[in-house]
Design a protein around this nucleic acid. Structure first.
Lengths: 169, 169
DNA sequence: GCTTTTAGGTCAGCCATGTTGACGCGGTTG
DNA sequence: CAACCGCGTCAACATGGCTGACCTAAAAGC
């Protein structure tokens, strides 16, 4: 009887624990994107533009197909926002040297500035959370988050050389 | 000189650390929603329907305004998906006893079944991540995630009585 | 008891961002 | 030189946000 009760209770706790995880992800993601979204709205951009700017800043000289592989959207969807960013001078395209079909993407000065501005609040939010939680908690956070990813995405974090560096350019 | 170098290196690590946090959130959220999205697409629903079903399941007899406060969308947006869910028999509305203007929302059997099906993959994903990372890591994960929230959302987790229980019904 | 506020719904239209499908151009490669 | 590939583009559609206007019925305030 006591055993049964303990079992039930454990199941309940587990259920609660899992729900907590789901909700933390939902709320955190929403608040994480809220502030940049406001800035973006002012200049007529959306979250999609932020993602492109972020990853182009993260991986300078990234090709369009590499970017597509990261974002996992169609090239038509990417094209819309990328085109605007290029036309408005936030991103530069240069023809690949080795393969002249490729467009290597890079932030302009203006692009770097916007990226910095957009990500600043997010960086602060994370930095605050890390500081409040402590180094050990951060390690746990990373472990759990990694565990949520599929192998493909997990690979982007583990190796000394991220996937793209293994790709011929 | 050594000090300077250490400082620079620490800054770099910090920058990398923060970027890692941002990206973990991006990838994890995307994969977290991918599987339910597929199921939803088959029955002509979208992610918005899932959110409504989830929170109605989580808080049976929740009112429309409480739901709006959680989701932080407009009532017109909610109305669209909630209406479909009610008409198709996934959610029941009953008039509030104390306040007859209120519609208390509840999942039907059909709704419970769909909720279970949708959340199952997410539960598994989280359970897997928790299991792989260990109890201590989970505690760290929770701490960091909580630190990312604004006070308002954080309050939903901390108290023995969630905000809605303090609300008169 | 009358007025105001509140809970909820509805119509209409706009926007951002995702999708599919088809097609074109130029560069690379077997 | 043919086939494939990287990239771009046109067109059409769906989802899910948004604003603004307007409605009913119930509750609350005076």
């Amino acid at each position: 009887m006591a055993d049964l009760k303990a079992g039930v209770n454990q199941l309940f706790l587990r259920e609660e624990e899992l729900r907590t995880g789901m909700e933390l992800l939902f709320y955190a993601y929403r608040e994480f994107t809220a502030e940049p979204d406001e800035i973006l709205a002012e200049i007529g951009f959306g979250r999609a533009h932020h993602r492109v700017i972020y990853f182009v800043g993260r991986y300078p000289k990234i090709t369009v197909s590499e970017l597509l592989a990261i974002l996992k959207i169609t090239k038509q969807s990417l094209s819309r926002v990328l085109g605007e960013l290029v036309r408005q001078g936030f991103i530069d395209q240069q023809t690949g040297a080795r393969d002249r079909r490729q467009r290597l993407l890079e932030l302009t000065g203006k692009g770097v500035e916007l990226e910095r501005q957009l990500s600043e609040t997010q960086r602060q939010r994370i930095a605050r959370a890390y500081r409040m939680a402590g180094a050990e908690a951060v390690e746990g956070f990373r472990k759990v988050m990694m565990g949520m990813l599929d192998d493909e995405d997990r690979a982007k974090f583990t190796p000394p050389a991220p996937a793209r560096l293994a790709t011929k350019r």
